[in-house]
Design a protein around this nucleic acid. Structure first.
Length: 553
RNA sequence: UGUCCUAUGGUGUAAUGGUAACACUGCAGAUUUUGAUUCUGCCUUUCUAGGUUCGAAUCCUGGUAGGACAACCA
């Protein structure tokens, strides 16, 4: 039935399982707690957890917290929350910092084997020793210290005898290696800094290269999956594992996610937050999971998106339209329908009694065929429709309201426009219509067929709410190749707030994570800024709009 | 002037030596009490030059193009 082809990692896993190399697999998701997760992480999460789920293994959450300078507990909590929200459960919650003692012993082992040494060179000197990609490096003058001296010096580093930067521990590999990462890479550096978990217990901290593979090995990770920029690290990853004779985890790399009109760099996203170009990590314009969640995107839609984009090793730039498609696709199935008029134009039904009003019913979700549900909508003599749904001189193919033209008010009656009322300046202030009593929705015996169907609200029952509409965060499709500062390309119109729009009264029952479709306007979600007196809705995405497309032609 | 990775419609991703396909986008049409949804159809593809082979998107060689690599970041 489901003959979906495998991506290259699934092929590797299947081959490893088939050959008996592993009985089951262990993957891990290894964020550094120095920021919030974004859509790129979602791709990695779906991959790592998805693999384990598909092939009956497990996935650990491991915080790669080896740099105390940038890491904070706030981020740890945010990350855990985001993963759970996406719908995944980790087998174990682990921290690289849990392994500091063991990592230290690993380092001692390498020193003892003559494979690591303490270097007094400054970072500038070390950089110089490294050479360039086309020129071999040269040995450090400290490279040939005795094992005993190295042991003593490294112990002293750990004990806090030296200041930051005074000494480092380096692996003794090959300063002439074609791979820059193999030219005696740093294993440990001194940082007299408070760590979010180990406090002041340590003043030497392992580098990524001396923590990641070792952590994988400690946890018996079978498939350690990371992004392409780590390809050159793989040789080192394997080297440490081999020299330490520890569990042989293997590293595999895939291409990271790039999306049009946004950025996926933690560093740059942090900049947007710090410099207040956005309201925070959870600003609905941000590609962070906190942002898209607040925007109203669902975990289901994000998982579907991650499934659709696939996994490969070539650079990519995914059209954000695909994400929006996934969001619409899911929201269409689950969103509660409501009518909200953004830019009101008063309609007076002149043949409807002034003192009369009635309650009509409308389905909550026509896509839910088993249980569409229904809510009450008040109808009266004075209504609001969308100003753009009326034109005095309509163009061809316009089948909304116009003088003499008939339209249906959704779930109510067919009306005909008889008169346009203007103020002294010629602005339209209201339109007078007559309704067809026998055209009532559900019991229409009028025999009249109309093409246009409008959303509307009763003027006297309408509830004032705020809507926040979002557009792309950047003006250019590919922000990363745009010249100059990426911030120059921020879209100044990415947010527009409509502080008071007119909603049908049933909106009052909105709950926090309930998704809505405002008919013909888009998908919305209640924002956390809402108060009892003022509901605020974020627009996740617009509806497809063929008419808008037609007009723009 | 190094090493490594990559190259399939506009964008992604498949095809695992045997008819290049799927999704998104775009275009056209049908249905529709949301110009939504749904449905149908159409447009558009193997970087290049050689080689191996009965047969190459796939294997080999050269070229070209893009990316990664020289943080006491991860």
């Amino acid at each position: 039935m489901d003959e979906k082809s495998l991506n290259f990692l699934e092929e590797i896993v299947e081959a490893d399982l088939a050959s008996g190399k592993y009985k089951s697999i262990i993957t891990r998701f290894p964020p550094e707690p120095n920021g919030y997760l974004h859509m790129g992480h979602a791709k990695s999460i779906c991959l790592n957890f998805g693999l384990a789920l598909k092939y009956g293994g497990k996935t650990n959450l491991r915080f790669d917290d080896t740099n105390p300078v940038t890491e904070e507990t706030e981020y740890v909590e945010g990350i855990k929350n985001d993963i759970k929200w996406l719908g995944f459960n980790w087998a174990q919650e682990l921290y690289a910092s849990d392994y500091f003692e063991q990592l230290y012993q690993f380092a001692v082992t390498l020193v003892t084997k003559g494979l690591a040494y303490v270097d007094d060179s400054s970072s500038e000197e070390i950089a110089k020793q490294k050479g360039t990609p086309t020129q071999p490096g040269v040995n450090s003058p400290y490279r040939d210290r005795s094992i005993e001296e190295n042991l003593r010096l490294f112990a002293e580093m750990k004990e806090g005898k030296y200041k930051d930067g005074e000494k480092v521990l380096r692996a003794k590999v090959d300063m002439a290696h074609v791979n820059m990462h193999m030219r005696d890479p740093l294993m440990y550096r001194i940082k007299h800094t408070h760590h979010h978990r180990t406090g002041n217990n340590w003043c030497v901290y392992p580098m990524y290269d001396f923590a990641h593979g070792q952590s994988d090995a400690i946890e018996n990770v079978t498939h350690s999956i990371c992004t392409l920029e780590f390809v050159p690290h793989r040789a080192l990853y394997d080297w440490f594992i081999e020299k330490l004779s520890i569990y042989p985890s293997h590293q595999y790399e895939f291409a990271r996610l790039n999306m049009t009109y946004t950025i996926m760099s933690k560093r740059k996203l942090l900049q947007l937050v710090n410099e207040k170009h956005v309201a925070g990590w959870d600003d609905p314009r941000m590609p962070t999971l906190a942002g898209v969640r607040r925007r109203g995107y669902t975990p289901e839609s994000i998982r579907q998106f991650c499934d659709k984009i696939g996994i490969a090793k070539r650079e990519n730039l995914i059209d954000v339209g695909l994400l929006e498609f996934c969001v619409r696709d899911h929201l269409n199935k689950v969103a509660t329908r409501r009518m909200v008029v953004f830019d009101p134009l008063k309609v007076v039904i002149t043949n409807y009694p002034e003192d009369k009003s009635e309650i009509l019913a409308s389905e909550n979700n026509p896509e839910d065929h088993d249980n569409p549900g229904s809510r009450d909508i008040p109808f009266g003599r004075e209504l609001f429709i969308e100003r753009e749904d009326f034109m005095e001189e309509p163009p061809k193919k316009y089948f909304r309201l116009a003088p003499g033209q008939m339209v249906r008010l959704k779930s109510a009656y067919i009306i005909q426009c008889n008169e346009v009322i203007k103020d002294g300046n010629g602005n339209i202030v209201e339109v007078h219509c007559s309704y067809v009593p026998e055209s009532k929705s559900g019991s229409d015996v009028s025999g009249i067929k109309v093409k246009g169907v409008l959303h509307w609200v009763s003027a006297s029952h309408a509830l004032g709410v705020e809507v926040r509409l979002y557009d792309r965060l950047f003006k250019v499709e590919n922000v990363s190749i745009a010249e100059g500062d990426f911030k120059d390309y921020i879209n100044p119109e990415s947010l527009s707030v409509l502080p008071n729009v007119y909603a049908e009264p049933a909106i009052a029952g909105a709950t926090e994570m309930e998704r809505f479709q405002f008919l013909r306007k888009g998908y919305f979600v209640l924002d956390k800024d809402s108060t009892k007196d003022k509901l605020i809705f974020n627009r996740a995405v617009t509806l497809n709009d063929m008419w808008a497309k037609e007009v723009s032609k």
